[in-house]
Design a protein around this nucleic acid. Sequence first.
RNA 1: GCCGCGAUGGCGGAACUGGUAGACGCGCUGGACUUAAAAUCCAGUUGUAGCGAUACAGUGCGAGUUCGAUUCUCGCUCGCGGCACCA
Length: 808
Amino acid sequence: MYNHQEIEKKWQTHWKETSLYLTKEGKDRPKYYILDMFPYPSGAGLHVGHPKGYIATDILARMRNMQGYNVLHPMGFDAFGLPAENYAIKNKVNPKISVAESVAHFKSQLEILGFSYDWEREVNTTDPNYYKWTQWIFLKMWEKGLAFESSEPINWCPSCKTGLANEDLEDGKCERCGSEIEQKPMRQWVLKITDYADRLLNDLDKLIDWDDSIKEMQRNWIGRSEGTEAIFKIADTNEIVTVFTTRIDTIFGCTYLVVAPEHELVLNLKEKISNWAEAEKYIESLKNVPEMERTSASKEKTGVKLKGIKAINPFNNEEVEVFIADYVLNSYGTGAVMAVPAHDERDYEFAKKYGLRIKSVVSVDGKIPFEGKAAFTDDGTLFHSEDYDGLLSSDARKKMIDWLENNQLGTRKINYRLKDWVFSRQRYWGEPIPLVHCEHCGVVAIPETELPLKLPDVESYEPTGTGESPLAAISEWVNTKCPKCGGAAKRETNTMPQWAGSCWYYLRYIDPNNSKALVDTEKEKYWSPVDFYVGGAEHATRHLIYARFWHKFLFDIGVVSHDEPFTKLKNVGLIMGEDGRKMSKRWSNVVNPDDVVHKSGADAMRVYEMFMGPFEQACSWNTNGVIGARKFLEKILLFAEVNNYQANKKSISLLNKTIKKVTEDIEAFRLNTAVSAMMILANDISEYKIKESALPISKTDFLKFIQILAPFAPHLAEEIWEQSGNKESIFLSSWPEYDKALIKDDTINLIVQINGKLRATLEVAADISAEEAFALATQQENVKKWLENKEIVKRIFVPGKLLNIVIN
RNA sequence: GCCGCGAUGGCGGAACUGGUAGACGCGCUGGACUUAAAAUCCAGUUGUAGCGAUACAGUGCGAGUUCGAUUCUCGCUCGCGGCACCA
């Protein structure tokens, strides 16, 4: 009988004792770096969805190993950040302790699933020896001017009591706790990711082995927009205002200007604005409106005319009115737009509401679509545009930009939706930012030799909510000496966000104990880049953008040898609850892998999770499905007890086809069809076994089957391998090759169609000719019947496949 | 609104570069074994008609291309995901 508990325990112990999974670095083998997104250990532990990706990568890693690669397949823990810290606060334990417990729990859960990780390379982002280098990278960025202090208003979560980056929001709410986000001006550290926007976008084209969905999400997130900046003078002043537009061709239709209420121009013109009181009141009223609400497209636009202010259109010198309005954002483009109500929906809506002039300048076939009803926003032919009349929009744009540039009144401009990365958190549980503030020298870096700057122990690690991190309360830590002048200085008390540590962890696995450099150059050159990276889609616009950004920076300063970190990327689809909803305590539909492993075994769970459906697709858990996988394994174990072999050609052929298919499917991550192919083979063997009490393939061939099963069900395969007299682990054996001669069929089922409808199938020699096939087919009763009194118009013969007879 | 992805039995899903639709698994029905149940094994399982051979219909809907369409083209519907007053 299949005693999975005994078998799995036996082999897990054995593998550990023999250090089977230590990374090999033999010179004669090619390398393959296969990586999972490491988890942040929460107190709740794993549910069955988490290991899905790990199982798949484990299968690929095991096959690559058997194929003779040096495989790097590590695992670690991303333990800084809000999830760990909030859990610690809630349960009133020091995060240091709770994180250690969570890590141990996660590890034990992973261990019983039989993964082939090299645990000697384990990485933990909260280890000072690790975050030393996270801090080092930050200092390098600071040196290059990519990290800077800013006091712009940022997203503030009132519940987590910290500032957040744009990437940390979901529908305008805190991604961690769901609280409504406020805008709060505060001093913070920001990383200039926008400097890399164009490279982050353009290089996506190089990543041909990434899922398109992820690339698309990143493109949307970066949000490139090509347009023009044009300068409007403010009449009777020395002020100018620059607007950004993608439709410079419509500038003759500009009937007013809108600037964001926070725009500096507004304060500069304060004296000239005759209704300043009204404007000021409006600006004040917007301050209390959350960003989310203010930028909601469904909300009616509001605004106030700046009386006494006129802007001059650079093309026709026409004077137009200037508004402040909530629908223009100070943080995008120039914070000012030229309003063309005839050709922009937002401007149209605003103009209608406030009774402003609407002037059309683009037509199609001499007509203005939707005139008087809506804005016409497509390209067309220009009119009422002086020298540009009759030009197509696209041509007009080119000519107008040329004119602006020649007259120094504007320029071509690309804007990105991506914002700089707000990099500081007012929380305890993160990497300290290794800078000090000196009264004389300003901001000064801690010397490299003093890294890591360790996170001090603290009595109260709860967030203060004052805009200061809990670190600010430890005066003996805060008060220090300036490394430059030796005078009194204060340490930076903000910490890094949770995404910092995961930006470069894949490099640490390559060289996990290096204390002299981030990574050894030779080792980096050997293992980089990551060949295959697997994780959840929720990281598309967070971790995966940040890591690409840091990697490109490390490339620029010569630390790494490639400008992209991950060659191939696949998304793992979620496993939903049995009820079709997302697994959550709230719905009490969470399935614990420990229970499944205990009841049916790790191997059955591994096989089932791969079999459920396409890897990238979300899928509902089905308890009976695990039982199906288990039955398949039981069947195979029964084969191992048979000592009688009567090799037959059909089964040998099927075995070879299965080896081919499983190999190719693992490579392409079609793991569901790989399992199904093995089930088909097992069914074939089983049928024969029941009839003849023998296996239809030789013992050697049967063991080949066990070898291709091994990555999926490592414990059972290892057990059968040993029982068959092998002394060395199955994972030290070579991956079986299929025999090309044996997968060719002598006979085929020829499909006979009449007018494309199936009328007969004939078992014939695979190399049958068109003539022979036709002769044979027309002898069939069911074919004759259909051909009676009909004229044959055409015969279509696909060798080895089908014959289609076309009749009238 | 824009962009991307998807829709196949009772369910999860399979189908190579256009060539037998429904592999494999779950479930269900009937049978064997059993005092009985569970487990196991055998047979069946897209729908309609027929004892049957077989025929017709059938891959979200409507057209089209083709000897032949789940697959390609055009137009929709619905679902999922991303972005969104981004000028």
